[in-house]
Structures are given as structure tokens and as C-alpha cells.
Design a protein around this nucleic acid. Structure first.
Length: 508
RNA sequence: GGCGCAUUCGUCUAGCGGCCUAGGACACGUCCCUCUCAAGGACGAGAUCACGGGUUCGAAUCCCGUAUGCGCUACCA
């Protein structure tokens, strides 16, 4: 196997980097429930770590006090765990490179910023956000590229002191070179080049003492010995800033691999307005974690020209950055549903029943007594397993097994090419014959009913259709005999009598 | 506007110069199976490989340009 066969080496040639152990990280910002796009990036990182025997690190980038959302870290870990993406270092598991919350590493960033200022690679900026906003609007109006105008770039220490004595809290900006270019070889996208003149003096340290993503990720990736940064493609434009900082700090940068984005149906970056975006919502909508793992991995990655269903083990065994695509992909719900059906059908019956149970408890009509009888549920589940695509739809499929009173429109009892009287007759005769049947086993039911259809001058399908509706109140159900068998003699007979009574009230 | 990236069936993709009159999957259509619904099987429709130039004996594959789309352009990540 040659994981990065196609990547011409520029980093590989550098002494010491080639045999470095793989250390990758997933560094989400705790701003809400984990989105599928971010989770996919986490997966690719995890996959590379597991494939190479490396280390997968979870680091929380909580550097934006204003966007922090309570409980978000728990949600993120919950999503990761649900998919089986275990981390070797990070919250709750610790590690030698902690703390793994950036809000607890402030001194490190401040120290780096101070050093860069001392070296002359960064400077204090006292411009107010109002001024900056005005400047931007002006630039846009004049069709100039927006960017900091570097007003504070050459303030003297004395001027700085004066501003500060006036109560101004500065930010620290990076002093971007005014010439030259910054380039890197992305493991997925290949060579990417930026003119330094197109990069503005970005903020590294905010006035509240917190770092921006740019500074924090560089400092931490270095401190945590990250070997590969796999992150969303939307970061590609920021990469030269990071590279510039590595250079100023005298650090060797990690290797970069940007993965393409997951798009909404309108081809724009997937966001809340596209509907379900959190991995946890997919869980709640009845998708299996193995489905999500398989499906998400195959958005942007492929094994070959035909593999669609692939296990986690095979994914780990075969994963490589080289087989990553570079185009954004729309999340195809129909295909997800199909794949979930495939995985559901592959579940052992008891496993299926076990996974459905919580959905049943939640979704069955409130009139149904809880807790559900596990053995009864286990008998029903095989009848619907191959018919379900999402766990959430099972309740609707098996409702009639639990409910006391069926609700349906009586004329529905009348099958194709039949009328009220033939249906009445079919029901009457069936009922009387069935009453004499002591054991409602599948085989006996079939042995009785099939010949009966002929005797009544009906096609088997017609009789079965009448009985199906009578006994379930539905026109689409699992096979009749199995259904009746599980329902049991008493309930079937009772429902047949009810059906008869209902149909009699229908005028002909 | 600037910069960056991308561009193969509706969608997800295979394709690394000849195997491609472009393969697979979802969805779709027809048929088979069948007590309904599924599942399964068979078949089919669906892509002038964004467009235009090159390079080459030969290009979906390499190069250039154009178009379109997306991303970034915050004291967000």
C-alpha cells in the first residue's frame, strides 16, 4: 500500500520529518451541535491516525468567548462517540500535551505574540472596530480589496504607551511581508501559491487577551507535535497566514491536507438553513452510526470504482489521503436512506429489535402501555426489519400490533374488483372458518385461507387484501399469515368481527 | 472587487495519455418474483467528460485561456 504515492515530496525531503509519527487533531469550536461536515473532517483525521497507528487528538478551540455555547463540548464528544471516533488525547482522557482547551492555554499564545512583537514580526494595533468598519465600507465602495490599512504598523513604543495610557487595549497584528509569495503543497489539492501582498495584517491576539484561530492553531499544533493538519477546504485561504507565522516563529510547519466541503442542495456550504446538519440529528432520525460512518466517508473519498458498502475496519485498512477527491459534494439523502436500509437489513434480528426499542417507546401512540413487552417486540421486528429505512418509521409500521382499537375507513375493506356484498361474504366465511382453527400458526393459516379464496371464487390476493385490512387497518403490511400469527387468534377474530360490523354500516 | 480552489450522468463517484463508442451506486422507468408493501433479480433511460485553444500518432486524463460555481476576504472558527 502506498498511502501518498502521488504526492511529490517537498516536505519528505526535509530531514527529520519523514519518519515522524502521525499525530492529527480534530479541533472544533464549541458553538453548537457538531455538524456533519466537521464530523467528516474528524473522521478523516481519525482514519489517518488509525491507518498509520498514529495518534488522534481532540482539542477544543474555545477562543471566542462571544460564540461559546454551553453544552457544546458535550455534544461534540457525544457525536464523536456515537460514531466510534475515539480520541487518544483530549478532554476526559487527558494526554501529555494538555490542556486540550485553548481557553486554558492563553499564556502560551500571549507569549508567542509577545515574542513576535519583540522580533518585529508583529505589532500592537489600537484601531477601534468602528474605524475598521468604516475603513472596510470605504474600501468596498471604492472597489478596493478590503483589508487592514496598516495604520498602526509603525507606531513607536512611545506612541503605543500614550494610546495605552488613554485606556486603549490593543490587538496584536502580524506584520505580513510586503513582497514575496507563500506557497505550500497541499496533500489533496497540490501546490497552492499566494502573493504576500494579497494578505493583510491579520489579528493574532484580540484585545481581550484571547488568540484568534490563526495564532492558536499554530501555537498548539506546534506544541502538540501535530504532523498533519486535515481540515476543511475553507481554510485554504488562511493557510499562508499560518505558514508565515511558523516561519517567523522558526517552526517547521505540519503537512496540510484540506478536504472538500459538504454542500447543501444549492451547492453552497452546508449550513442550518439546509435542514438537518448535526450528526446527532441523523442519529435521532433513525440512521445507524455504521451507515453514517460509511456514507460520510464516501463523500469525498472512494476505495475504487464500485465499492459502496464498506466496513469501518476496511476503511481504516484502506484509507489514504491520495484517494480523496477535491470537489465539494452535495449530501444525498436518498442514497443515505438506501444505505441505512442496507445496514438495517444486515443487523442480527435481536440487535435490530434492541436498537428500535427506544424509538418505539418514544413514537408509539401514548395510549399504548409502557414499557413495551420486549419479547413481543422481538417477535414483531423480523416482520418489518427488511422494510425499514429509518428507525423512526418503525412505530408507524407496527402500530397495529400494539393498539387496541383500529382506525380505518370501512370501504377500504373492499378489495379490488369486489363489492360490499362479496366482501361481507368473504369476511363472514373467513371468520367462521378461522374460529374453528385453534392454532394460528403461519402454516395452518395458509393451508386454510388459500383454498378458501378459491372456494369463494376469489383470487388469493383479493381475500388476503380484505383480511389484511380487517386485521391491521392498513393496506400495506408485512405478509398476512406472519402478521396474523404474531397478532394471535383472539385479536384476529375480534378484529374480523369488528370489520364485519363496520362494513355493515356502510350503505351499498 | 481581490485572492484561492474546483468543474465527468439529476446526485455521489471511477478514471492518473491508448483498456472509455466513459464504469459503478442512489434516484427514475419497464419487466420478473409476489397476498399488499418492501427486499431481490433482469433490462433501460440518463454525461457531446463546462467551453475554446494547444501539446501528442493518440486527451476525460497534460498545458493555456474563458465561463461558471464555491470558499476566504471579522478583535468567528
Amino acid at each position: 500500500m502506498h498511502p501518498q504515492r502521488r504526492i511529490p515530496s517537498s516536505f519528505d525531503g526535509r530531514i527529520g520529518t519523514m519518519m515522524q509519527p502521525v499525530r492529527v487533531r480534530f479541533a472544533p469550536s464549541p458553538t453548537g451541535r457538531p455538524q456533519v461536515g466537521n464530523i467528516r473532517t474528524a473522521m478523516f483525521n481519525w482514519l489517518l491516525a488509525r491507518h498509520t497507528g498514529g495518534t488522534f487528538i481532540l482539542r477544543i478551540e474555545d477562543t471566542d468567548v462571544t460564540r461559546k455555547v454551553g453544552g457544546a463540548v458535550e455534544y461534540i464528544m457525544e457525536g464523536l462517540r456515537w460514531l466510534g471516533l475515539d480520541w487518544d488525547e483530549g478532554p476526559e482522557v487527558g494526554g501529555d500535551y494538555g490542556p486540550y482547551f485553548q481557553s486554558q492555554r492563553l499564556a502560551l499564545y500571549q507569549e508567542a505574540a509577545r515574542r513576535l512583537v519583540e522580533q518585529g514580526d508583529a505589532y500592537y494595533c489600537y484601531c477601534s472596530s468602528e474605524r475598521l468598519e468604516e475603513m472596510r465600507q470605504d474600501q468596498v465602495a471604492r472597489k478596493q480589496p478590503p483589508g487592514y490599512d496598516r495604520r498602526c504598523r509603525s507606531l513607536t513604543p512611545l506612541e503605543c504607551a500614550q494610546k495605552e495610557s488613554g485606556g486603549l487595549r490593543p490587538v496584536v497584528r502580524f506584520r505580513v511581508p510586503e513582497s514575496g509569495q507563500t506557497r505550500f503543497r497541499d496533500l489533496i489539492y497540490g501546490d497552492v501559491v499566494f502573493e504576500n501582498t494579497t494578505i493583510d495584517d491579520f489579528v493574532m491576539l484580540k484585545s481581550d487577551g484571547y488568540p484568534t484561530y490563526h495564532l492558536a492553531n499554530v501555537v498548539d499544533d506546534r506544541a502538540m507535535k501535530i504532523s498533519h493538519v486535515i481540515r476543511g477546504e475553507d481554510w485554504i485561504s488562511s493557510t499562508p497566514r499560518h505558514l508565515l507565522m511558523y516561519k517567523a516563529l522558526g517552526y517547521e510547519p505540519p503537512q496540510y491536507a484540506h478536504n472538500p466541503l459538504i454542500l447543501g442542495p444549492d451547492r453552497s456550504k452546508l449550513s442550518k438553513r439546509h435542514g438537518a446538519v448535526s450528526i446527532l440529528e441523523y442519529r435521532d432520525q433513525g440512521y445507524l452510526p455504521e451507515t453514517m460512518f460509511n456514507f460520510i466517508a464516501l463523500i469525498g473519498w472512494s476505495l475504487d470504482d464500485k465499492t459502496e458498502i464498506i466496513s469501518r475496519e476496511d476503511l481504516v485498512k484502506n484509507f489514504s489521503l491520495e484517494r480523496m477527491g477535491k470537489t465539494g459534494a452535495i449530501f444525498n439523502r436518498e442514497k443515505l436512506d438506501w444505505m441505512n436500509g442496507v445496514y438495517i437489513r444486515g443487523l442480527a434480528p435481536d440487535d435490530f429489535a434492541r436498537r428500535v426499542l427506544p424509538f418505539l417507546e418514544k413514537d408509539l401512540p401514548t395510549a399504548v402501555r409502557r414499557p413495551l413487552h420486549a419479547d413481543y417486540v422481538r417477535r414483531i421486528m423480523p416482520l418489518v426489519q427488511e422494510r425499514t429505512k429509518r428507525l423512526t418509521e418503525v412505530a408507524g409500521l407496527v402500530k397495529f400490533f400494539f393498539v387496541d382499537e383500529l382506525e380505518y375507513d370501512p370501504p377500504l375493506l373492499i378489495a379490488k374488483n369486489m363489492d360490499r356484498s362479496t366482501t361481507l361474504k368473504a369476511l363472514e366465511v373467513s371468520l367462521s372458518r378461522l374460529e374453528k382453527l385453534a392454532d394460528f400458526s403461519e402454516a395452518l393459516l395458509e393451508a386454510l385461507l388459500r383454498p378458501l379464496a378459491e372456494e369463494l371464487g376469489l383470487k388469493a390476493g383479493q381475500l388476503f387484501s380484505v383480511l389484511r385490512t380487517a386485521v391491521t387497518g392498513e393496506t400495506a403490511t408485512p405478509p398476512l399469515f406472519q402478521t396474523m400469527s404474531v397478532l394471535g387468534r383472539d385479536r384476529c377474530l375480534k378484529r374480523l368481527q369488528e370489520a364485519l360490523a363496520r362494513l355493515r354500516t356502510v350503505s351499498s
